[in-house]
Amino acid sequence: MSAPAASESQGAVVFGKKRARALLPGARPLAELGATIGFGALGMAVVLLIWWAAAVRLGPLRLPDPWTVFVAIKANWRSIPAMQYVAMQGGGVGDALAFTVVSVLVTVAFGAALGVLVGVALPHVAILRLVTTPALAVLGSTPLLILLPFLVQWFGPGRFVRSGIVVIFTFVVMATVCFRSSAQAIGSYGLYARSLGAKPAFEMWHVVIPALVPDLIAGLRVSLSTAWGLEAVAEIVGGKSGIGRIISTMAHLANTTVILAVVVCLCVTAVGVDGVLTFLVRRSVAWRD
């Protein structure tokens, strides 16, 4: 048996080098990160393999293989000749992706800000609660995408309708999440905070807001994951720019390769943004076990 642990912070007795490495500061998170990346890469490799097999089975016209799509992304990144010719529109996959990403982030941010304000206010303002709760229930159950063609017909294919869908969806999600979370925080900790002398504003800032941060970020992730699809579909139906516009134009030209190329770019971006959000979650809720 080897010697006891050198310092109290290392805890248990050390047995051999493996255990010593595991107990070094930072070793465990690095190992976990390595495992996460490794297994993630393995998972992606399996997806690509299945895609390749399906592409071989279905043929290049119906389903291009991953390499063809990757080449198409590179070739069309700065400009898409077909878009210039058919839609008389410049720019490539990169520009369209940037447009869609900015649209989604701005509209989600706006919808989230409204939703958080309303959601946090609901437990405190009875009239607002009576007025808003039924509307939230209806909007939350309504499949907004089905309304899209009607909204485009009534209000035109402009920014208002495209952004409005994402804003409404995000608002409903965030308001519902924040309402439930802040009501729970008030129920669990409100009386205790007040018995320590906290006034309402102090209670809001030091109890309610921190308590709802995990649920708020979870709500943001849900909102974003759906917002990508909502924005893309809205662009398909009535947009003049963005990923959806490329998809609708390339669909008319039966150019499956470019369609898949922009979809893959959108997916990768969505995963990347979710990854950033996950990182922020871990940093901001270090207090959770």
Binding site: S188, Y189, L191, Y192, A193, S195, L196, G197, A198, K199, F202, H206, V207, P210, A211, V213, V285, W287, R288
Partner: peptide, 24 residues
């Protein structure tokens, strides 16, 4: 009030929990 259930604020460190009332 010391409640029967656990009311220590999970998002505040131990020292910040102890001084919550003072800060308020």
């Amino acid at each position: 009030v010391v409640f029967q259930r656990d009311t220590v604020f999970p998002w505040k460190r131990v020292a910040d929990n102890i001084t919550f009332g003072l800060k308020a």
